[in-house]
């Protein structure tokens, strides 16, 4: 079964490498991975969808916690969440007939036509992973020529707030009494 795991990490170089390396090393299967900054400049948020048994997800959580740069981990598979995946699909739309149909489809689905070229159009749709799958199926009859998905992001509903979001990285500083002006450096 699929598990969704949210991981808050320190916003430092190389942290993503450690997370991905862990999955490879422990032979866990990663379905999708989404990484991005947050409103807190010290914290990056990683959403991982993985395939595995309940025990595997637990192992992933404990092993992620062993990484020093990982601040908080949550398996949100069984937690009420809002989850979204975004898809951009470039489809064939060479004539007025197909473009009209596409416009109608987008209207029904709440999708958007974001680019119309001479022969092709790009549509954008956001929804749960299942909905995105269904929408892509609807597009197949037009002929999909290119497609990209953002990967799933997820957030707990209501007051389910991850404490790690407030994390502040401790900045090391030499006490002012010890310093007289700017640091020198030579190579």
């Amino acid at each position: 079964m699929k598990h969704t795991i949210i991981c808050l990490v320190e916003n430092k170089p190389g942290v993503l490498n450690r997370v991905v390396s862990l999955f490879r090393r422990r032979n866990f299967n990663m379905d999708s991975l989404t990484v991005g900054r947050t409103h807190n400049p010290d914290v990056s948020r990683i959403t991982i969808v993985m395939e595995g048994e309940a025990g595997d997800a637990k192992k992933v959580v404990w092993n992620l916690y062993k990484l020093i740069d990982v601040i908080e981990v949550q398996d949100v598979t069984d937690v009420p969440t809002v989850e979204r995946d975004l898809v951009l699909a470039k489809v064939n739309a060479p004539d007025a007939y197909s473009r009209n149909n596409l416009t109608e489809l987008c209207y029904q689905w709440g999708a958007r036509l974001v680019d119309i070229g001479p022969d092709v159009a790009i549509v954008e749709y956001t929804g749960t992973a299942d909905k995105v799958e269904d929408f892509i199926d609807q597009l197949r009859s037009y002929g999909i020529v290119e497609l990209v998905r953002s990967g799933l992001v997820s957030m707990g509903r209501g007051i389910r707030i991850m404490e790690g979001m407030n994390h502040k990285t401790k900045r090391f500083a030499v006490p002012a009494a010890l310093t007289n002006g700017a640091h020198e450096s030579e190579s």
Binding site: V9, E10, Y65, L67, I68, D69, V70, I71, E72, G164, H167, K170, F172, V174, P175, L178, T179, H183, E184, S185, E186, S187
Partner: peptide, 23 residues
């Protein structure tokens, strides 16, 4: 190597180490 050659004020903190992701 250039970090080994660079010069800075040496200060070894003695406050307890706090690592948010390390329990």
């Amino acid at each position: 190597k250039d970090v080994q050659n660079a010069v800075t004020e040496f200060y070894y903190p003695d406050a307890p180490i706090e690592l948010p992701g390390y329990h």
